[in-house]
Design a protein around this nucleic acid. Structure first.
Length: 279
DNA sequence: CTGAGATCCTGGGGGC
DNA sequence: TGCCCCCAGGATCTCA
């Protein structure tokens, strides 16, 4: 559930709390969530004593970067929450998988009831194991680069937007919102999109992601930022979670259909398949 | 390589 | 009312 705007919102509070602070103690960890070169049982030793430079983000991944050059990758899955709190912490919340105490008494807690989240310790000079496409808000992500990876593919555009190797950080909510905004039917085969449609999709992706960040993320079920606050973007969603409600553009009812194994919300009237039927 | 589908996991919602 | 079932979601794996 946390997509790029939600992860970026968490990153801001997380970075503020741990920047230039040293890890004093790793209080507890669930080794089942840990992947990569450093096994879960060794994670505590590996982290203890590390001094933070800053917290970065790549797609939906948080990058906890250390002076040593090592970094810890955190992925929140769908129900993961990362919270920074001050000690003493009296309340123990269920499904806490990782607790990291900083030298100023702050605690970073990772909770994830559904365990889709992952943690990966990456030694200096190494790369995280996941291959990711371009950052959608970076200059390298252009209409042309997006067209380049879409025109050879015949899968539904919705499915490809969820592929992190195409573009990093887009999930179900922002994919549906961007397709609505650019008036593209989610089942349109990517290689049937016109240059104009891809340009519109590129613009729409950046718009909905920026809007999500500006409103502190979308809270639909689980999302909270590092301070426990909910995001304010949900009222700005046009189609996601609005089945049966009138389309904000044409008033036709929003519908939902499973595409590529994921629920897709769209307006069947103004998101047309256009050229897809001409053969 | 590409695309489709299964898999993991559990709170909460739907249906009876 | 209560209980069982099933499903959402992201990344990754398998299979054709």
């Amino acid at each position: 559930m946390p997509e790029l705007p939600e992860v970026e919102t968490i990153r801001q509070g997380f970075d503020e709390a741990v920047r230039e602070r040293r890890i004093e103690k790793v209080l507890w960890s669930d080794s089942r969530m840990v992947q990569g070169a450093v096994p879960g049982t060794a994670l505590g030793d590996w982290l203890t004593g590390q001094e933070t430079t800053s917290v970065g983000r790549r797609g939906k991944f948080l990058l906890w970067q250390f002076v040593s050059g090592d970094f810890l990758v955190l992925h929140l899955g769908m129900s993961g929450r990362l919270r920074v709190q001050c000690l003493p912490e009296a309340v123990w919340e269920p499904h806490t998988h990782l607790v990291v105490r900083m030298d100023d008494g702050h605690e970073v807690r990772l909770r994830d009831p559904r365990r889709f989240g992952r943690v990966e310790a990456v030694p200096a000079g190494c790369r995280m194991s996941t291959e990711l496409g371009p950052e959608p808000l970076a200059p390298k992500f252009t209409q042309r680069s997006l067209a380049g990876v879409l025109t050879t593919r015949r899968a539904p555009i919705k499915a490809l937007l969820l592929d992190q190797r195409i573009v990093a950080g887009v999930g179900n909510i922002y994919a549906d919102e961007a397709l609505f905004r650019s008036r593209i039917h989610p089942e349109t085969p990517a290689n049937h999109l016109t240059v104009g449609q891809i340009a519109g999709l590129h613009r729409a992706l950046r718009h909905v992601l920026r809007q999500g960040i500006r409103h502190g993320g979308t809270t639909f079920q689980f999302f909270q930022d590092a301070g426990g606050r909910e995001g304010g973007n949900a009222p700005h969603l046009a189609v996601y979670g609005r089945i049966g409600e009138p389309c904000p553009r044409c008033r036709h009812a929003i519908t939902m259909k499973t595409i590529g194994g994921r629920s897709s919300h769209f307006c069947p009237r103004c998101q047309s398949m256009k050229d897809a039927g001409d053969l």
